[in-house]
């Protein structure tokens, strides 16, 4: 295993010296054309971030709406939650993306609605729904970790369901919920690469397009991987900061 790890950088180095296999020139920022290519590749970053952020926000809202019936005393409501979570979790992202992008507009049409779905919103809707099954479970676990006595005490001072959640349960549960929720954001960023197949001009799509014109897949996809790596590392640092803060709050 260790040997294997050594081989990878050696290969990369070897590639730098022999232009037969490696052609770093395509993304060499010191040359005019290389720099143009790099700018082209990185310019997909904004779309990736936008899609991921909006999908994450929607998933956070949707996840809570799915989680709450799962905590109900009424069996029927719990079923609604179980079916949604199990169903959504079972669908692979790519088929869901196709269904939303190509299928959903037809559903809308048959209902007499003219709602076009562009790649941007198609990707966001798919990512948000797919992720919401996971955020719902995070909420459920977080809320269930708050002792039953808290809810009962809130009820006995006259708070209704929404007030109990808003002022008593969620402010306490948020410490358990926020770090895993932020972790889930990493999943969204990585999955947003699928948006490339419906024509969304994000990181992966840009890389694909450049590969077609330059025919240098190894270099371009290597850079692509590093682009995602940097994004994810930044988010991870944010998650760790959040976990430390939440931990400190709990102790204080």
């Amino acid at each position: 295993m260790k040997k294997l790890l050594l081989i990878v950088p050696l290969l990369l180095l070897a590639g730098c010296s022999s232009s037969q296999t490696w052609g770093w020139y395509v993304i060499d920022p010191t040359t005019q054309s290389g720099w143009t290519n790099v700018k082209f590749l990185i310019s997909g970053m904004w779309a990736t971030i936008q899609i991921s952020l909006i999908a994450a926000v929607l998933s956070i809202v949707l996840g809570l709406m799915v989680a709450l019936p799962g905590l109900s005393e009424k069996r029927g409501w719990r079923w609604v939650n179980r079916i949604y979570v199990e169903f959504v979790r079972a669908i692979p992202l790519l088929p869901m993306l196709f269904w939303v992008f190509y299928g959903l507009p037809i559903v809308f049409q048959s209902m007499g609605l003219n709602i076009p779905i562009d790649p941007f919103w198609g990707a966001i809707i798919t990512l948000a729904i797919s992720d919401s099954a996971f955020t719902a479970e995070i909420y459920r676990a977080g809320i269930q970790s708050i002792a039953r006595g808290q809810r009962e005490a809130a009820q006995t001072i006259g708070l209704n369901y929404v007030q109990t959640m808003r002022y008593v349960i969620l402010p306490q549960a948020i410490r358990r919920i926020l770090p895993p929720l932020a972790n889930q954001f990493i999943y969204i960023v990585k999955m947003s690469a699928f948006a490339s197949v419906i024509g969304m001009q994000e990181l992966t799509r840009r890389a694909n397009e450049l590969v077609v014109t330059e025919y240098r897949p190894l270099e371009i996809y290597t850079l692509l991987i590093f682009e995602y790596l940097i994004l994810v590392l930044i988010i991870s640092a944010g998650v760790r900061w959040l976990e430390r803060r939440m931990g400190a709050d709990e102790r204080g």
Binding site: A147, G149, Q150, E152, A153, A154, T156, I157, V168, P171, Q172
Partner: peptide, 12 residues
């Protein structure tokens, strides 16, 4: 009104 064995004050 109700007073519980475990107090159930809101810690936050």
């Amino acid at each position: 009104g109700m007073v519980f064995q475990q107090f159930n004050l809101f810690p936050h």
